[in-house]
């Protein structure tokens, strides 16, 4: 049952990509209103998938990279709906649907078997750590897509740039605050399990690197030469660092976080 729902979600995301591509080629009115529909449906299906998984497992789906990724796709969708209320841009719709399609294709290769939580993973702090990570990285994902739109549009001296920049800033502030919480809850949990709140594990270290990148963005905004294009580049690079922290580290650098 879950596999069919996942496949359906993936098809909906691909459909969204195709509709948004078509919109950019020929501005047909009904395509504009059709664009968000597959995304709404995908979000609904993801809710069902996650609710099903919660019921099956007897706990929230926060225990491995597969569950994390599915949950993150849903939260990114929710963030996308929020931004759409203040900003209408077909490139943004395309960017988000493309990103989600790629994330979804990737998570299909992650092990999804339902296993009971090992002793070390049974902690409220861990649940908080994973939940805030999903929220933080989703915020950065939205900022990333907005950053790309900003960079595309600066060549045209668009009037919307100021608003896009403002939304990027909002997303990064939320993401940064949440990422701070991720690091803190992770540290408190680590201290509770292993007696050490920081051990320079690759995942820990890269989450700190991610934190530094966005801290640099927040500081750079106060410097004249860094507003606009350069800031947008920072949020684009920042999300690449997020992706490395999330997936690159697990695949390329083994360590304590081998649960993920």
């Amino acid at each position: 049952m879950a596999e069919q729902l996942l496949m359906a979600t993936f098809i909906l995301l691909v459909l969204a990509v195709l509709i948004n591509l078509a919109r950019l080629w020929s501005p047909i009115i009904w395509l504009d209103s059709a664009a968000p529909l597959p995304m709404y449906l995908a979000a609904a299906l993801l809710l069902v998938i996650l609710a099903w998984r919660t019921a099956e497992a007897g706990r929230l789906p926060l225990a491995n990279m597969y569950e994390f990724s599915v949950f993150m796709v849903l939260i990114i969708l929710l963030g996308y709906f929020l931004i759409r209320r203040v900003l209408q841009a077909p490139e943004f719709d395309l960017a988000v649907s493309l990103l989600l399609t790629m994330l979804f294709a990737m998570l299909a290769s992650l092990p999804s078997d339902l296993r009971p939580l090992m002793p070390a993973l049974q902690s409220r702090w861990l649940s908080a750590h994973v939940a805030t990570a999903i929220l933080a990285y989703s915020a950065f994902a939205i900022a990333f897509c907005l950053g790309i739109i900003y960079l595309i549009r600066t060549s045209r001296e668009d009037a919307s740039l100021k608003e896009i920049d403002r939304q990027i800033y909002r997303m990064v502030v939320w993401g940064f605050a949440l990422l701070t919480l991720v690091i803190i809850t992770g540290a408190v949990w680590a201290e509770e399990v292993w007696g050490n709140w920081w051990s320079w594990d690759p995942k820990e270290t890269w989450s700190l690197v991610t934190w530094v990148v966005y801290a640099a963005y927040l500081h750079a905004r106060r410097t004249r030469g860094w507003r606009g294009r350069r800031s947008a580049w920072l949020v684009v690079i920042g999300f690449l660092v997020v992706l490395f922290t999330l997936y690159g580290v697990s695949i390329l650098l083994p360590g304590l976080h081998s649960y993920a």
Binding site: W200, T205, W206, L208, V209, V212, V213, A215
Partner: peptide, 12 residues
């Protein structure tokens, strides 16, 4: 801060 971040990344 950026330098500390970069050096830390190097260690991974």
């Amino acid at each position: 801060l950026i330098l500390v971040g970069a050096v830390s990344a190097l260690g991974t």
